[in-house]
Simulated scan of single mutants.
Amino acid sequence: MKPTHKLLFVLCPMLVLGFIYYSSGKLHLHVWGQKPLYDKQGFLLQLDTKLPPELAYKYGNLSEGVCKPGYAAAKMTAIYPKFMKPAPMFLDRNFKRLAKVSNYLPPFGFKTQERIIDSILTATKNYGLGEELDSLSCKRCIIVGNGGILFNKSLGSRIDDYDVVVRLNEAPVSGYGKDVGTKTTIRITYPEGAIQKPDNYEKDSLFVFSAFKPLDFKWLRQMVFKEKLRGTEGFWKSVAHYVPREPTEMRILNPYFIQEAAFQFIGLPFNNGLMGKGNIPTLGTVAITMALHNCDEVAVAGFGYDMNKPHAPLHYYETVKMSAIKESWTHNISKEKEFLRKLVRASIITDLTNGI
């Protein structure tokens, strides 16, 4: 064997071993008998509510109740080093530059829908929460779920105290203010989940649209331009025919939050980047993911299903019981709950109803 060949013969295995060792630090692999520090999603295995030293120094001296700038993202990064904060809440006219979603079809991106989105955004004109909220140096947000666990908790005034109150789909406010509050900053929905009676919409909230299939964008365009609803065959239930909002009060949620929640945070099947069995996160978890990127402090209320209480109310606004829940084709509730529990255990989010 030639000397150069001998050298290569020795060097190659060493280079491979070196690469594996280096990668183990970057990717948190379990190598050579070491106990792994991170789970397969990339979250720290040992979660507690203590602040890391660098965060304790930054936030430890702030008075009780004072909003902590950057707190949610800083704590998230501490338990999930891959977390990258910049991710705009809504699509704007530069949406095509969002590389992480431009190559995916709905719900994980907007591929094939660029032209229709362009026309919608031309009409909506605004792409933020509004001048007052966008100018806040620190935002406290709460995502209000629809769970029956909210019933008779008298959390209304506490919920209304947050800067941004996020509600989901058709969950009503009128008549339930004592438990769920009266303030709505944004209501996130998709066609089948949207409020169908125009009179049930709050006056001052933003209508925030989340797409799960290409047809959804066609529906939104008809709502924005106040056109007669056509082509409803592809929806799985009846949809609203009219949204009593001006185009300037409508937004398109960045689909990156669906993608990140599904594949990075929860670990649902990738399925070549297409919607498939059990790989769609619930809208509540999508909203929490959005808040982690865009709010300084994040709280939730009305989350969590307790299957050990089959006769408990499923939602706070109707008599359907917990036993009505069937295994979902699209969601993986147990894996999703596992992710949300990590956020609660690490005090990244505050769960006002203790249902997670």
Rank of each mutant, 00 (worst) to 15 (best):
K2D: 12
K6A: 14
L7F: 15
L8V: 10
V10N: 08
M14H: 08
V16Y: 15
V16W: 13
G18M: 06
G18R: 05
Y22A: 15
G25R: 14
L27K: 13
L29V: 14
V31R: 09
W32V: 13
K35Q: 15
F43K: 01
A56D: 13
Y59H: 12
G70T: 03
A73S: 15
A73H: 06
K75C: 10
Y80P: 05
Y80T: 07
K85W: 04
K85Q: 15
P86E: 12
P86M: 08
P88G: 11
D92Q: 05
R97T: 14
V101R: 03
S102M: 14
N103A: 11
L105K: 10
G109V: 01
F110D: 00
I116R: 14
L121H: 04
L121Y: 03
L121G: 03
G128E: 11
L129E: 01
E132M: 12
G145I: 02
N146V: 02
G148N: 03
K153M: 07
S154I: 11
L155Q: 01
S157G: 10
D161V: 00
Y162F: 15
D163I: 07
D163K: 04
D163E: 12
V165T: 09
V166W: 00
V166T: 11
E170M: 11
G175Y: 08
V180N: 00
T184C: 14
I186Q: 02
T189K: 00
G193K: 02
A194G: 00
N200V: 00
Y201G: 02
V208D: 00
F209K: 01
A211Y: 01
K213D: 04
K218P: 00
E233W: 12
G234I: 10
K237P: 04
A240N: 05
H241F: 09
Y242R: 08
P244Y: 10
R245V: 04
P247M: 09
E249I: 03
I252A: 01
I252F: 06
N254G: 09
N254Y: 09
Y256T: 03
A261I: 03
F263K: 03
F265S: 00
P269G: 11
L274C: 11
L274I: 13
T282L: 04
G284S: 06
A287S: 15
T289D: 12
A291Y: 12
H293F: 11
D296F: 07
G302T: 07
F303A: 05
Y305N: 14
N308C: 05
K309M: 07
H311A: 10
P313T: 03
L314R: 10
A324T: 12
A324L: 04
E327R: 07
S328E: 13
W329L: 15
T330Q: 14
H331P: 07
I333Q: 11
S334G: 09
K335S: 09
R345G: 06
A346P: 02
